[in-house]
């Protein structure tokens, strides 16, 4: 019977390490920020009752009627509870980009140009989406 051997290469291990740490931080952030938001421990840009009264509307109609956080607009007033909670979700959306950057550098050091290209091209797609260029942002 063979003892378990780990076959992950060093690029995978680097990716796994940054992914694990960044995700743990992200989960902690979304929970803490949500507590600040839902218990209204910080001032809000939009009362929760107003959000709940309109959450049956299409997203476009919802934002037509209310001035709720949208895309990067949450950074305009990051000390509001709802903005902070939105920022924590944005952070979760950025974790993969950080990991891809680390993988791209590690592949480059390994002189693996195919996957250096794949990592940075994938990161570029996500950055363009995050910037709203590929994703219809405002």
């Amino acid at each position: 019977m063979k003892q378990e051997t780990i076959h992950a290469d060093k690029v995978q291990l680097a990716y796994a390490s940054i992914l694990g740490n960044a995700t743990t931080l992200g989960i902690a952030l979304i929970i803490i920020d949500y507590i600040l938001y839902a218990f209204q421990l910080l001032p809000l840009s939009l009362p929760i009752e107003q959000v709940a009264a309109n959450w049956h509307l299409r997203a476009s109609e919802f934002h037509h009627q209310l001035d709720a956080p949208l895309g990067w607009s949450c950074f305009s007033d990051p000390l509001k509870g709802d903005m902070l909670s939105y920022i924590s979700l944005i952070y979760l959306g950025a974790v993969t980009m950080l990991c891809l950057f680390v993988a791209g550098i590690a592949f480059f050091r390994d002189k693996n140009m195919i996957y250096t290209f794949f990592s940075f091209a994938q990161m570029a797609v996500l950055i363009l989406a995050a910037a709203g260029i590929l994703s219809g942002g405002h």
Binding site: Y34, Y37, A68, P69, G71, Y86, V125, L126, S135
Partner: peptide, 19 residues
């Protein structure tokens, strides 16, 4: 992640529901 950014930019993510 890629699709989530579209929903964030279109305002289709509410922290009140998502978290």
């Amino acid at each position: 992640t890629a699709a989530a950014w579209v929903y964030l930019h279109k305002g289709a993510v509410l922290p009140l529901i998502a978290v």
